[in-house]
Write a protein that binds this DNA or RNA. Structure first.
Lengths: 207, 207, 207, 207
DNA sequence: TACTAAGCGAGACGGTACGTCGCGTCTTCTT
DNA sequence: AAGAAGACGCGACGTACCGTCTCGCTTAGTA
């Protein structure tokens, strides 16, 4: 794994042996990711999210970006990872509350940018299994949290014993995704959307 | 409406007055769309789906493409329209049967290509409301058919009276979309997937 | 031979069959070469003679330059060819007059630029026999003219019968070259330099 | 004078006061110059004679080079100085013998590299009078030796009293230069070339 | 023995130019 | 007119060096 994907992985990998030469400027990483957000925020086309623009905005040489990520897509995957923030942790009191929390976490205001970045990635992901794998390594842990909530619900009897976990997961994340990335159905702005979706799904999933 | 969007629209627009000069080569339209499919099929990156490559593959000058579509995205929208084929018509016997049919129609083998083309469009769609509008003019009629089925179900009492049609629509199309475009959840290959999804949705939607 | 080297060669090569597609803009060729001269004239370093600068100065895209010449050096060779202008033609009355004319032709005011351009080429020529060959195809015809004058002088008895033509040629062109390119010996500004050099050489070469 | 130009100069400059800190590694100087020679010898383009390549070849950090020379050109000038070796000393028996010796010294096998290095310098020398001055400080002493031989020849009556020393010098060094740097006239390989050139020049210069 | 000061290999840094590719437009000749 | 061909201005791509700047380490002279 050449590029970072996540900082924690890299730091834990090496055996305390300090790399020779001048160390990377950690601030540059932040500046670059921030520049990606700024550019996406300033209303310009996702196609216009060029490495050159990012470098200029971040006040950084192009090489400094290419030293960290092998290409534009890898950078964007890491931008996504940053946007997602830390893994959400379900409280565990009730399946409904946990799911509402998880679904809401997929739909906060940062997700406007998330949709744009993902859109930028899709053309390349459609082809490259490698990129898809990297992207999944960011997305899948979050999906796994939801799976855990569903499985626990089955154990506690809150959910039907024969529930198709994978299908239910898709019914929760698919609509969110369609809104974030495809900008379908303006009800996306509805504050109660998360609850409505979870309730609709649970109505068919409850024991 | 500059570009075609659908062939039928254009042909009905002109008033029998024969245009002067050499008529357009109708075969070229087919060749161009076919070239788009061929390129997507030949395993190359979606980014590599350039107009130049399409023109070369179709044995056509670039101007011949730009004479028909104002830009790359418009061409791809029409490619999608072609892939989708004619509007599906629900039989009307039962809501379940109709929904299974509609969902299945979104997931046949052509849809692998559909995901790729859509992926190509997303970066530009994220910015351009114009392109989003055009794309919707292709997608929305299909979604409207589904809405009709749901509304009829409410009328006949097959579905709950207080059903949120828009949300239900999203629960049907979102998972499909997530599979087609994002290639999430390998159960996409399951032949029974359409039935399973519809049943899960209906379980919470039934009266 | 991909690039032009000389316009005349190219035009005589094809068999009256017009190339398909939009023809090259002949003005662009002139603009590009002119931009090279302008940049060299405006006192900037030869290293700064970048293709990007030439394109900007000429109001032309980089691709338009690379369509005509495979690289920077090839462009400069053609710039040299242009600077040299048409082959000088010796009058033939006396060897001395002809040589003075030829030597003077190598040292006019355009030659300041000539030195700069040649200097730009040398690093690459030192390695690439191909580039050296191209450059020689521009320079050699002129050297051949001088050889002709010398050989005729031997025939007419004006010059010693056992004269080493090649060595004499080198004694005439070497000093000029050292001045033009290396900027040795400030006597280069002397108006009588051509006569002085020719006389000095002839003093040892006369019959 | 920031850089070395010649080692001897620098060493004589300091007043026995030992500089504090770790002394420079004298071997590095040799390794660097040697790396320049090796790279030029290994048949690669003169353009490829990058500082980075030199540093890598010499097993040295880039900073170690820049600590000794202010830029690439200064390094190359010193490489030339090294190649030239110590000032040749004319025997003084006859003008012809001395000139043959001096001309031969400009044309030994090391001079193949000399031509390449000089070629690398020319683009920058064409602009920078400073670099030209530095280069002359290496070349000029050698030219001065030749001038001395010519002047002595005039005094002894071996050469014409009204001989133009500067022009004669140019007639001797120009051809050599044209061969070394421009690789003109393959007779450069002729072992008798030095004698032939000197004789030709003297034939017109003799009293 | 410890401190100070510089040299050293390594390599990151902000830049600039390279040569390539695709965009959407244009200009030619042919159909 | 439409068509195939392909040149045009533009701008981003990813690479290579430039000359500068840290890093941690080594190697002296001085305290």
């Amino acid at each position: 794994m050449e590029h970072m994907t996540t900082v924690s992985v890299q730091e834990s990998a090496d055996q305390d042996r300090k790399a020779p030469g001048r160390p990377r400027n950690a601030q540059a990483d932040l500046d670059i990711i921030q520049a990606v957000f700024d550019l996406l925020g300033s209303g310009l086309s996702a196609t216009a999210l060029s490495i050159e623009a990012v470098a200029a905005k971040a006040g950084v040489g192009k090489a400094t970006i290419y030293r960290r990520w092998p290409n534009k897509e890898a950078l964007l995957v890491d931008a996504i990872a940053t946007m997602k923030g830390p893994l959400p942790k379900p409280v565990g009191e009730s399946v409904r509350d946990d799911l509402v929390m998880l679904v809401s976490a997929m739909r906060n205001k940062r997700m406007e940018r998330y949709g744009k970045v993902t859109a930028c990635l899709l053309p390349e992901m459609a082809k490259s299994p490698e990129l898809r794998r990297i992207h999944q390594s960011v997305v899948e842990p979050r999906r796994e949290v939801t799976r855990g909530v569903l499985r626990r619900g089955i154990e506690t009897g809150e959910l039907r014993a024969d529930l198709d976990v994978e299908l239910t997961l898709l019914m929760l994340s698919g609509p969110i995704f369609a809104q974030n990335v495809m900008q379908w159905s303006p009800l996306a702005t509805d504050e109660n959307f998360a609850e409505a979706l979870v309730d609709a799904v649970l109505r068919g999933a409850a024991a």
